[in-house]
């Protein structure tokens, strides 16, 4: 009898300890984004005191050695590359998601899943190498001469193109999930009224899932905004506001990644780069929150 009681106590104590451990982990993870934000903010305090938020964001003079830090060229480059990436990737994602969920068989979807997974798993540096091997020459010595433009190929366009390919698996997976949730009977009601299949897809499926589609692209956008190495490798990295998509650009993540070596010697530069990271995080989190809110809203309506 005594042994059963101690055994029981032992189990209880073990449970207490493990439960404590488990709950601490929950607390830690909930604190993590706050800790990241605070540490980046404290690091960028120096530059914020030095040159005010609006000057940092909207000035286009970038001379770190003279103490002038204007992030505008980088923000514009980031916006251009992200925007192009989304434009290129949107039709492919939408059309394939519709085909895979509405026309294709289950087997086809099963066969395509590994393809999507492998595309998603390829590291960004490999996408970068591929971009240098194929996309940059294609832009520089094929597309640009066709339009009569001089460019090295390392351009916003190349960055957007590589980014578009990287976004495909990410957005496509979300779209497939969303299209699957549409109830079958809605579809059949439309078909039985004499609408064609495409007509039904256009009005019922796309209409019904519109908020979901928007948030899928919102999530894609926030992923695109932070993509570093692949874009850095093909985008040219020249500090100037790009005028056309054949000009080189210099997105925010590339700025942080490229200047790591030099930043340590100048405190203000170090602070500026940490501010860039904070800015990136803020933008990404904003888009994330907006998209997730839209998705939750959409699920509630279903």
């Amino acid at each position: 009898m005594a042994t059963t009681i101690t055994y029981y106590k032992l189990r209880k104590i073990k449970d207490r300890i493990v439960s404590g451990w488990v709950k601490t982990m929950v607390g830690l993870v909930l604190l993590l984004p706050v800790v990241i934000a605070i540490s980046l903010l404290s690091k960028s305090w120096l530059i914020l005191g030095h040159s005010g938020l609006s000057e940092l964001l909207f000035s286009s003079v970038w001379r770190p050695l003279a103490g002038e830090f204007g992030f505008w060229p980088f923000i514009i480059s980031s916006v251009w590359v992200t925007f192009l990436g989304l434009i290129f990737t949107a039709p492919i994602c939408l059309l394939s998601a519709i085909y895979l969920t509405q026309y294709g068989s289950k087997r086809l979807l099963g066969m395509m899943q590994p393809v999507i997974d492998i595309l998603a798993g390829i590291p960004s540096v490999i996408y970068g190498v591929w971009g240098i091997l194929l996309i940059v020459p294609a832009v520089g010595s094929f597309l640009a001469p066709l339009l009569g433009i001089e460019t090295s190929g390392f351009s916003i366009l190349a960055g957007g193109f590589v980014l578009a390919v990287m976004l495909i698996p990410f957005i496509l997976n979300i779209l497939i999930e969303i299209f699957r949730t549409v109830p079958r009977d809605l579809f059949e009601a439309s078909l039985s009224l004499g609408a064609s299949k495409w007509h039904t897809i256009k009005h019922v499926l796309l209409g019904k899932t519109f908020p979901g589609i928007i948030s899928a692209f919102g999530l894609g956008l926030s992923r695109a905004f932070g993509e570093t190495i692949a874009v850095l490798m093909v985008v040219g990295n020249v500090v100037a506001i790009p005028k056309t998509i054949f000009d080189p650009g210099y997105p925010l993540p590339a700025l942080i990644a490229n200047n790591y070596g030099e930043m340590l010697s100048i405190p203000m530069f170090d602070s500026a780069l940490m501010f860039a990271a904070l800015l990136l995080m803020a933008i990404v989190i904003l888009f994330n929150i907006f998209s997730r809110w839209a998705i939750i809203h959409f699920e509630k309506k279903q």
């Binding site: 993870v29 984004p33 926030s222 940490m274 990404v284």
Partner: peptide, 22 residues
């Protein structure tokens, strides 16, 4: 919790790099 985890998933790795550095 799931919302926070999804947010963390969305933060670009370069930001984690900068955070790791600090």
């Amino acid at each position: 919790i799931r919302f926070v985890l999804d947010l963390l998933w969305g933060i670009p790795s370069i930001v984690y790099g900068a955070f790791g550095f600090t």
